[in-house]
């Protein structure tokens, strides 16, 4: 069976070199040779720290950004080769939920107009009344009173706006939704509401999520599979259970252990990495993690390890991959 989405060797370099005024080429390799699948109906979480390229990767899949190299196949069709007219039609199948509930809604349009826009574009509800009826139904689905249809976004709280953004995304019955940090801008007590809503909608409609997040507790709750990114590359991917219980890449292990949790017993297991994430415009040679890796050897500075299978369904890009590779003694 073909996966819903297959990204192959996908890459994006920002910043043109040379140009009229020459100058130093300020090229940033935001995404580098990424290959992965998203299966129909699953939630694949993409985690990593800021600047690791996870948001760029989400946008490459939707072709909101054109890739520099590689392909994205959606239901077998290479979306990177579609004309802009064909791509517009394809947007009925793939949607996005944004992080910023304040910026992602056009401030001078009513929420009815915002949610109705995709319906209008794809002719899904013909006529004004039919469209209003469908918008009312969508508002109801995301837990907002349909009577709010003619209000402007600024009258709503962050959580309510995020519901509007979700209604806009599901309006066209997409098969795939990129959710780019959908709860990280919300209050803690509101996050659970939105996460539950997203899960309910997925259970009813059967679409897939690419869930981009930095909150590892949320990811553990919502994801089926998890992909970990570091400096533009996927360093580990696999089923949630394996990633959380037996991470095989030292970065995954450190990342998971660093996340503070409201638990009584966490502190003892913490691995503190040295130094900062290197700049994406100056990625270290070999394994890009070797500058911070507690178990790096000479080979890590020379050869970049490929993403290879380490357990059923689990792939890691490390020369020394094994469950929990950093010894606990180092964690102190």
């Amino acid at each position: 069976m073909t996966p819903l989405i297959r990204a192959e060797n996908l890459g994006k370099t920002f910043g043109a070199s040379g140009g009229w005024f020459g100058g130093a080429s300020d090229q940033v390799r935001a995404v580098d040779g990424v290959t992965f699948d998203v299966e129909a109906g699953e939630t694949l979480a993409l985690v990593g720290e800021s600047g690791c390229g996870k948001s760029t990767l989400g946008r490459l899949l939707l072709r909101l950004i054109d890739p520099t190299d590689g392909t994205v196949r959606f239901e077998g069709q290479d979306v990177t080769r579609l004309s802009s007219a064909e791509m517009r039609l394809m947007r009925q199948r793939m949607q996005i939920i944004f992080q910023d509930p304040f910026g992602s809604l056009s401030p001078r349009r009513t929420i009815g107009q915002i949610i109705g826009e995709p319906l209008e574009i794809f002719g899904l509800a013909r006529g004004r009344q039919a469209r209003r009826d469908r918008v009312a139904q969508l508002l109801d689905q995301v837990g907002l009173p349909p009577a709010y249809m003619d209000r402007l976004p600024r009258q709503f709280s962050g959580g309510q706006r995020q519901r509007v953004g979700i209604a806009r995304a599901i309006a066209v019955n997409p098969a795939f939704i990129v959710a780019d940090e959908p709860v990280s801008a919300l209050d803690v007590s509101i996050q659970a509401q939105i996460i539950n809503l997203m899960q309910d909608l997925q259970r009813d409609a059967g679409f897939s999520y690419l869930f981009i997040a930095h909150d590892l507790a949320v990811v553990r709750h919502i994801a089926d599979r998890v992909a970990v990114m570091y400096l533009g590359r996927i360093v580990e991917v696999g089923p949630k259970r394996l990633i959380y219980d037996a991470p095989q890449h030292p970065y995954t292990q450190a990342l998971l252990s660093a996340a503070p949790e409201p638990e009584v017993d966490t502190i003892s297991r913490r691995i503190i990495l040295r130094g900062d994430v290197p700049s994406p415009s100056n990625i270290p040679p070999g394994c890009s993690f070797h500058t911070r890796c507690p178990i790096a050897q000479e080979i890590c500075r020379q050869d970049r390890p490929p993403l290879a299978q380490v357990a059923p369904g689990q792939l890691a890009a490390c020369h020394f991959a094994r469950p929990n590779p950093i010894p606990v003694a180092d964690a102190a």
Partner: peptide
């Protein structure tokens, strides 16, 4: 209680998160 139940926790895994109704 609600706050602690509404965040996903290792020690209290659940299919569905508890949600505090309403807004702040």
């Amino acid at each position: 209680q609600g706050l602690l139940r509404s965040v996903p926790r290792r020690s209290h895994e659940a299919e569905r998160l508890y949600q505090i109704p309403g807004s702040v």
